[in-house]
Design a protein around this nucleic acid. Sequence first.
DNA 1: GCCAACGTTGGC
DNA 2: GCCAACGTTGGC
Length: 154
Amino acid sequence: MNHWLLKSEPDSFSIDALAKSPKQTSAWDGVRNFQARNMLRDFIKKDDLAFFYHSSCDVPGIAGVVKIVKDGYPDKTAFDAKHHHYDPDSKTDAPRWYVVDVKLVRKFKRIITLDELRPHAAKALKDFVLLRRGNRLSVMPVTKKDWEFVLTLE
DNA sequence: GCCAACGTTGGC
DNA sequence: GCCAACGTTGGC
């Protein structure tokens, strides 16, 4: 069982939006970066856990925990010419983009903010990809050690 | 296969 | 709205 961090802009999809989704479950769609795609397609597996991270917003930070409930499968939004995430290079017989399904496990009582995480970048969280300079990955692995440390901050 | 130009991300 | 960082594209 592995751990991950999934970024989302709360204006487009927040942890509250997930909480209101049917069965509190949703496809994690719209990822359009190959490195992140590879993780969705090949490495993230059912029953893995992930942090739900809010980016590009007033208070960037980790909002809660989700569980992967379905392995990677093709991102349908890439096939829809009217969709914001349409990609003509992704074909139904050769999909370019993938999603996993996630289910809400719990929303933290408060956001564990980026500001709170940063001071630990030198030591406790030195392997945390999120805190690496210039990091832009929207899907990233989290070590068990880092996962457990972050949970102590809540 | 190199690399400049361009677009996007994401914190501030 | 700015801009650093970095991924992708496309000409060569």
